[in-house]
Amino acid sequence: MHMHKLEKIWLVIGTATLVMFLTIVGISAFAQGHHPPSDKTVLDPEKVDSTKPFDQPGLRKIGENEYELVLISQAFSFLPNEIKIPEGAKVHIVVTSKDVVHGLEIVGTNVNMMVTPGHVNSHTYTFKKSGSYLVICNEYCGAGHQMMSTKIEVTET
């Protein structure tokens, strides 16, 4: 099949750019560990309250300025409702849903993940700046979806 010379050049440049791009994305994911949230832990979606760690939702200190934040999504709220985190803390967020599919987004950060019933999702984030962070559900979950939010207060230390 004949291909115009200019088209060949165009496709070679395009494909080379593409390969470079995918290599960067791949290195970032596999070598530097920047995988998107892909937790493979599962649980019985009807027994969230009695399954660890969701039997005790909230913030738990696990190291030097390092915390685990256990969250439960349910129509149309998050548990716990008030969260206080010290500035600069590294927080491992663990979340699941008690009913339908929800989303967990901390506005102004890269924390953004799907919360599917029966599955746990997780992401680690360091809160470098103090202030009030808005936490919202960003997946339609029913008539009160727009009310589903909470706040994280990151306090100065």
Binding site: L11, T15, S38, V120
Partner: peptide
Amino acid sequence: ILESGIDPFWKFLQIVLTFMVVIPSLMTAF
């Protein structure tokens, strides 16, 4: 991409396949 229960390797593989459409797209634009 942001969903639990799917291994990141398979997500990445499908992302690579996704970007293959760049080639026929460039052909179309040309």
